[in-house]
């Protein structure tokens, strides 16, 4: 699978851009939290695309963002 780049994203409509990003980050999140992956991905897709691209290139920042999202989700559901 070729890397998702800013120029690749720029050629797609906004809704499609989020879809493309979601398809990339979902598998990573699913590895970490299989049951919450859909919701966590939905939350992270609210983040700016440029930051999402950075997170895809930097697994550490994606992981820390995922843990943040899990905490928010659990607080929301409590």
């Amino acid at each position: 699978q070729e890397p998702l780049t800013a120029s690749l994203l720029a050629g797609a409509p906004p809704q499609e851009q989020k879809q493309m990003l979601g398809e990339r980050i979902y598998p990573v999140i699913h590895e970490m939290h299989p049951t919450l992956a859909g919701k966590i991905t939905g939350m992270l897709l609210e983040i700016d695309n440029s930051e999402l691209l950075h997170m895809l290139e930097s697994p550490e920042s994606l992981h820390s963002k995922v843990e943040e999202a899990v905490a928010v989700l659990q607080a929301h559901q409590a």
């Binding site: 906004p14 809704q15 979601g22 398809e23 919701k39 939905g42 897709l45 989700l73």
Partner: peptide
């Protein structure tokens, strides 16, 4: 009030509707 439908859930291969209301 609390929004029980938040967050929108993403499913691979399914068009994501999360931005529809923006």
């Amino acid at each position: 009030g609390s929004n029980i439908n938040w967050p929108p859930e993403f499913h691979p291969g399914v068009p994501w509707k999360g931005l529809q209301n923006i």
